[in-house]
Simulated assay, not measured.
Amino acid sequence: MKDKQHIIDDIRAFNRYYTGLLGLLNNHLLDSDYSLAEARILYEIHSLQPVSASQIMSNIVIDKGYLSRVLKQFEKSGLISKQVSSEDARITLVSLTATGQTLFNKLNASSEEQIATLLNKLTGKEQQQLVGHMQAIRTLLSD
């Protein structure tokens, strides 16, 4: 049986492999002008809109200052719009504009194409095994 340090080393090696495979550490994700964090923020806005910054922070555990800067840049670029919550005037909600939705759709399609390319190398059975292993990892690491 491997000792704890070898297990840690194996997990870290897999993480380096997987992030490299998907290009997650590149400055720009999926040949776009956006980082992984920015794309993830767009995803959260798309999925939950209208959404508050605090909801985004709790979903992806991101620094408040960094999120604020990204949201300001998104607003300046015309990707999001802001409105005051009808339930609580202290809360500002953000939504994607048509431009933001177009960008999200492009990034999402690129991501799906990237994964489809990886899956095309596997048989149907191997694809199911891969998904099963991923589900097992999530189950083992969940609270």
Rank of each mutant, 00 (worst) to 15 (best):
M1C: 05
M1D: 08
M1G: 13
D3A: 04
K4H: 15
H6R: 03
D10R: 07
D10W: 09
A13Y: 08
F14G: 12
N15D: 09
R16T: 10
Y17H: 14
T19P: 02
T19R: 07
T19W: 05
L21P: 05
L22V: 09
L22A: 03
L22D: 09
G23Y: 07
G23F: 06
N26G: 12
N26R: 12
N27W: 14
H28I: 00
H28N: 13
L30W: 12
D31S: 13
D31L: 11
S32T: 06
D33K: 02
Y34G: 05
S35M: 07
L36E: 12
L36M: 14
A37F: 08
A39G: 06
R40T: 14
R40I: 13
I41Y: 12
I41R: 12
I45P: 03
S47E: 02
Q49V: 07
P50L: 09
P50C: 07
P50T: 05
V51W: 07
S54H: 15
S54L: 15
S54M: 15
Q55L: 13
Q55G: 10
M57N: 01
S58K: 10
D63L: 00
K64C: 09
G65Y: 05
G65N: 05
G65H: 02
Y66P: 06
Y66F: 06
S68G: 13
S68Y: 14
S68N: 15
V70Y: 10
L71R: 10
Q73S: 09
F74P: 10
K76H: 01
K76T: 04
S77I: 08
S77K: 14
L79C: 13
Q83A: 11
Q83R: 14
Q83H: 03
S85T: 00
S85W: 04
S85H: 00
E87H: 01
E87T: 00
R90G: 10
I91K: 11
L96Q: 05
T97H: 06
T97G: 01
T97Y: 04
T99M: 13
G100Q: 07
T102F: 12
T102H: 13
L103N: 01
L103Q: 00
N105P: 00
L107I: 13
N108E: 13
A109I: 01
S110A: 14
S110Y: 12
S110L: 14
S111I: 08
S111P: 00
E113C: 02
A116H: 11
A116V: 05
A116W: 01
A116C: 00
L118I: 09
L118E: 14
L118R: 11
L119M: 13
N120H: 13
K121N: 10
L122S: 05
G124R: 04
E126D: 10
E126S: 02
E126Y: 03
Q127N: 06
L130R: 03
L130W: 09
G132C: 05
G132S: 10
H133K: 05
M134I: 01
Q135M: 09
Q135L: 11
A136P: 00
I137H: 03
L140E: 01
L141S: 11
L141R: 07
S142E: 13
